[in-house]
Write a protein that binds this DNA or RNA. Structure first.
Length: 568
DNA sequence: AGCGAAACTTAGAATGGCGCGT
DNA sequence: ACGCGCCATTCTAAGTTTCGCT
């Protein structure tokens, strides 16, 4: 292990709750002020050009920029936008602009589209200059000093104003996200540090010196009244140690999970209904890697659920389905409105319990009544110190990777084949955690291209087979050295083509299976990096093949401490 | 104990940029 | 050189858990 890393990860910890002793930074970098449209770019109302006040114009540009986005076709988006936009208008503007469908943003849209194209077409030198400016900004605002280490900040810019883009069917989509001013921002740093200066003519909302939290600055956003934070980059010691701790907790679960499983199996037969509910919920969380499922405020967010907030309408019971007994069909929207759809055979007791939980309930009633996540987590806390619902996701994801790697890796394979095995193992985890992505826009086309290649190859193979047959016949007929050679050659050719075809087909399968699966989320958040580091060492795969630069920075702690015998 | 607020992790989409085949 | 497809990075929304108050 190298000395620097060793010291860095093994420095003495602070006393309870204290996250740092010294913290110094420059405060957030604010979004650039609005730049008015040129005179020749018009907003039109009812077919007539109309000059807008600065504030109204800025909001109009937010919508204009998004004109080709699906969002702007949604009624809720339009309605929310229009309401918030009108609030920014002058009285006179409000009197005129009464209907969104009479608003013409096309010139605005074109203006920003063209500007974007111009920027993309900039000569190399100009682009280089822009890049250097960005890196200067990063140097100045992107780092802080925390306990003597210069650490990278995760997000050092305030979020620019714009239109809120919620996920799924979000009731607030299209609302105006206000510009953040220094007067909105709370600064957190050390008393004895150089306290960041607000931009000239401005004041901070507050400067505080709270070393029990890790954030450097915060503000409250206007859509959900939620607090936004400026925090450190995952490569920082503070985040790294927390990450390490997370996986250590998951490893402790490994030791007691057997006991916990037999306990919840017993509890399926408890006389107490509440105990049964906890036991079934926990079974789902463990077996299916469901999230806890906190309650959400109705009408404030998209209607999504997790385990505890499942409703009767989200599951269907089949005593028998496709030759399997006691099948539960799940169909609900989870985090980010990603659909969870799964048909799972469950134990008879679980099935019976679910039936009871659903008795005399409406479709929109809670499946687990009176089971808030706090109750579940309290129960888990009693089973193991530090155990919460999400630890199961971490544990099951990591142990799945480890097991899959053991099963799929072939020591004799070359590096490329080993990486394929790794990705397969990774995919099993992504499937478990239901990590999905939208179909890539280019998917259809690239798949067609691939299919065309496959077709061409099949044609070639057919031809080669024909020739082989001919060569065989020739050889049989004449049986000379020459015909023998020819036969061998044709055989080889056929085999090579078959191999190539297999490879292409494999690629297609891989692409098909991966089209809606996102591997990154589990890799970054659920898989103990030490499993991957150990696997790389054991099988001689360079770590760079598994983790890119960012990921290596984030997992520096694991890369520094892990040898090939690590067991999760 | 129960709550709302605060803090922190996890998430997919959008954007940026780079390498590869033509 | 150029376009395009893919991977990395950025962005910020949406979760979970913890905190702190009554």
């Amino acid at each position: 292990m190298n000395l620097i890393s060793c010291c860095r990860w093994e420095e003495a910890n602070h006393e309870d709750g204290v996250k740092w002793k010294f913290l110094e930074h420059k405060g957030p970098y604010f979004a650039v002020p609005y730049e008015p449209l040129p005179e020749d770019v018009h907003f039109c109302y009812d077919g007539e050009p109309m000059k807008l006040s600065l504030a109204a114009e800025e909001v109009a540009t937010f919508y204009g920029k998004m004109l080709d986005h699906e969002y702007t076709t949604k009624e809720a988006f339009q309605k929310n936008f229009f309401g918030d936009w009108r609030a920014e208008m002058t009285k006179e503007e409000r009197k005129i602009i009464k209907h969104l469908d009479k608003c013409d943003f096309t010139e605005i849209h074109k203006y920003f589209f063209d500007r974007n194209e111009e920027r993309k077409a900039l000569p190399k030198a100009e682009k280089q200059k822009l890049k250097e400016e960005a890196s200067k900004l990063q140097e100045e605002y992107g780092y802080c000093i925390l306990d003597g280490h210069r650490e990278k900040i995760g997000n050092f810019k305030t979020e620019p104003p714009g239109l809120f883009r919620g996920r799924g069917d979000h009731p607030k989509m299209g609302m105006l996200k206000m510009r953040i001013r220094p007067e909105d921002v709370i600064i957190n740093c050390s008393k004895d540090s150089t306290i960041p200066e607000p931009p000239p003519g401005h004041k901070w909302k507050e400067v505080r010196f709270d070393n029990t939290v890790t954030w450097l600055a915060s503000w409250t956003e206007n859509i959900q009244s939620a607090i936004k934070y400026i925090m450190l980059n995952p490569s920082s010691k503070l985040k790294g140690e927390k990450d390490w701790q997370k996986y250590e907790t998951a490893r402790r679960l490994k030791d007691v999970v057997g006991h916990i499983r037999s306990q919840y199996r017993k509890d399926w037969k408890s006389r107490e209904m509440k105990k049964r509910q906890i036991a079934v919920a926990l079974y789902f969380i463990d077996k299916l890697a469901l999230r806890a499922g906190n309650e959400k405020e109705e009408g404030e967010t998209a209607d999504t659920v997790g385990c505890c907030s499942l409703r009767v309408e989200h599951i269907q019971l089949f005593p028998e389905l496709d030759g399997q007994k006691h099948v539960v069909e799940f169909d609900f929207l989870g985090k980010d409105s990603i659909r969870y759809y799964n048909k799972v055979p469950v134990e008879k007791e679980v099935f019976k319990n679910l039936k009871r939980f659903m008795e005399n309930k409406d479709p929109d009633d809670d499946l687990f009544d009176r089971l808030p996540t706090s109750t579940l987590n309290k129960h888990l806390q009693d089973l193991m110190d530090g155990l919460t619902a999400k630890v199961f996701r971490t544990y099951n994801a990591s142990i799945t990777l480890q097991n899959q790697l053991k099963e799929l890796t072939n020591a004799e394979d070359n590096v490329a084949a080993k990486i394929l095995s790794y990705n397969r193992a990774n995919r099993a985890v992504a499937l478990l955690c239901n990590h999905q992505r939208a179909l890539p826009k280019t998917y259809e086309k690239s798949m067609q291209n691939l299919q065309a290649k496959i077709d061409a190859k099949e044609e070639q193979l057919k031809e080669a087979k024909k020739e082989l047959k001919k060569a065989k016949a020739e050889h049989k007929k004449y049986n000379t050295e020459k015909t023998k050679k020819e036969l061998e050659k044709k055989k080889k050719q056929k085999e090579r083509l078959e191999e190539q075809l297999e490879k292409l087909k494999l690629m297609a399968t891989d692409k098909e299976e991966n089209k809606q699966i996102a591997l990154g989320t589990s890799k970054l958040n659920y898989l103990d990096p030490r499993i991957s580091v150990a696997w790389c060492k054991k099988f001689g795969v360079p770590i760079e093949k598994i983790y890119n630069k960012t990921q290596r920075d984030k997992f520096a702690w694991a890369i520094a401490m892990t040898n090939e015998d690590f067991e999760f």
